[in-house]
Lab assay of single mutants.
Amino acid sequence: KLLSSIEQACDICRLKKLKCSKEKPKCAKCLKNNWECRYSPKTKRSPLTRAHLTEVESRLERLE
């Protein structure tokens, strides 16, 4: 599967780190437990900047 097509777990399953069936409108866990089942939009991760990478590398060197 391509990364862009990976389905996201519902908010509660993601928060509780449960295996989500990803069914809509309610996944199996939410249906069974009568929880409100919501699927928040995916958040875009910002790409690493060179400055951040350099900072992490220098912190790693100090720890070694």
Rank of each mutant, 00 (worst) to 15 (best):
L60S: 07
L18H: 15
E64G: 04
P47Y: 07
L53M: 14
T49D: 01
P25L: 05
N33Q: 13
K19I: 04
L15C: 11
K32R: 15
I6C: 12
Y39D: 00
S5F: 11
K32N: 12
E23R: 09
H52A: 02
K42S: 09
K32I: 11
L2T: 11
I12N: 07
R59W: 02
P47A: 08
C30W: 05
K42P: 15
A51P: 00
K42Q: 12
E57G: 02
L2P: 14
K26S: 12
E7W: 11
L60M: 13
P47Q: 05
C37I: 00
K17R: 08
K22P: 04
W35M: 13
A9M: 01
R62G: 06
S4G: 07
E23Q: 14
R14L: 05
S40Q: 07
Y39G: 03
P41V: 08
L2H: 14
K29C: 07
E23Y: 03
K1N: 15
L63M: 13
S58Y: 15
I12T: 10
I6S: 11
E61G: 15
S4W: 09
E55C: 13
R62D: 00
C30N: 06
P47I: 01
L48T: 03
E55T: 12
I6H: 10
L18E: 02
C27Q: 02
P47C: 05
T49C: 05
L31H: 14
K42Y: 15
K26E: 11
A51Y: 09
I6K: 08
L63A: 03
T43G: 11
C20L: 05
L53A: 02
S46H: 01
R59Q: 12
S58K: 09
R45C: 00
Y39A: 04
S4Y: 12
C30P: 01
E57A: 01
D11L: 04
L31A: 15
E36C: 15
K44I: 14
A28Q: 14
K16Y: 00
V56N: 01
E61H: 12
C37P: 01
A28F: 09
K29M: 06
I6G: 09
S46W: 01
K26T: 08
H52V: 01
K32Y: 09
K32L: 10
T54F: 07
L18G: 15
L63S: 01
C10R: 06
L63Y: 06
C13E: 05
E23A: 14
I12A: 10
C37F: 07
N34K: 13
A9E: 00
K24G: 13
A28C: 12
R50V: 05
K19T: 07
K29H: 04
R62N: 08
Q8W: 08
E36P: 13
S21Q: 02
E61C: 13
L2G: 13
A28H: 12
H52G: 00
K32G: 11
K17F: 01
L3Y: 10
K24C: 11
S5V: 08
C20M: 06
E57I: 00
A28Y: 11
N33H: 12
V56F: 00
S46C: 01
W35A: 15
A51I: 12
K24V: 15
A51R: 10
L2Y: 15
W35E: 10
W35Q: 14
K16H: 00
C30D: 02
E64A: 06
V56D: 06
L3V: 11
A9T: 03
C30H: 04
K29P: 03
K1P: 15
E23K: 12
E23W: 09
E36R: 14
N33S: 14
I12R: 11
S46G: 00
P41K: 08
T49P: 00
K29N: 07
E23F: 07
E7F: 11
R45Q: 08
L60R: 03
A9S: 05
L60P: 02
A9H: 06
E7S: 09
E55Y: 15
C10H: 01
L31W: 15
S21V: 02
C20P: 02
C10W: 03
W35G: 13
N34P: 01
R62V: 14
A9N: 03
L3P: 07
L31I: 12
S21K: 00
K17S: 04
R59S: 07
R14A: 11
C13T: 01
N33K: 10
E61R: 11
K17I: 05
S40G: 09
D11A: 02
L15M: 12
K16S: 00
L53H: 02
A51N: 14
L18C: 08
K42D: 04
K22V: 07
V56Y: 08
S40A: 10
R50W: 03
K16L: 02
L60C: 13
L31Y: 14
C37Q: 07
P41N: 07
C20K: 05
E61Y: 11
I6D: 08
K19M: 00
R45N: 02
T43M: 11
C13P: 00
K16Q: 01
S4M: 14
A51S: 09
L18N: 14
K29V: 06
N33P: 00
E55K: 10
K29A: 04
L2M: 14
K1D: 09
Q8C: 04
T49V: 06
K1R: 11
K16D: 03
C20V: 00
S58H: 15
N34T: 15
L48V: 00
E55W: 14
D11I: 03
R14E: 01
C30K: 01
S21N: 08
Q8K: 10
R59M: 07
W35I: 15
P41T: 08
L48E: 00
C10P: 00
A28I: 09
R45F: 03
R45G: 00
R59N: 10
K32M: 13
D11K: 02
R45S: 01
L31S: 13
V56H: 06
L48A: 02
W35P: 04
L60A: 13
S58Q: 13
E7T: 09
S46N: 01
K19D: 03
K29Q: 08
E64H: 10
C13N: 02
S46F: 02
E64V: 10
K16G: 02
H52W: 11
A51G: 08
K19Q: 06
K19W: 05
T54L: 07
K19V: 05
A51K: 11
K42N: 08
L18T: 04
K22Q: 07
K32F: 10
R38H: 13
R14C: 02
C20W: 00
P47M: 05
L53Q: 01
R38T: 15
K42F: 11
E36G: 13
L3T: 08
L53Y: 04
R62I: 13
E57L: 00
E23N: 14
S4I: 13
E23I: 10
E61T: 15
S4D: 11
R50P: 02
A9C: 02
L31K: 15
V56L: 10
K24Y: 15
L15I: 10
R38Y: 15
L3E: 15
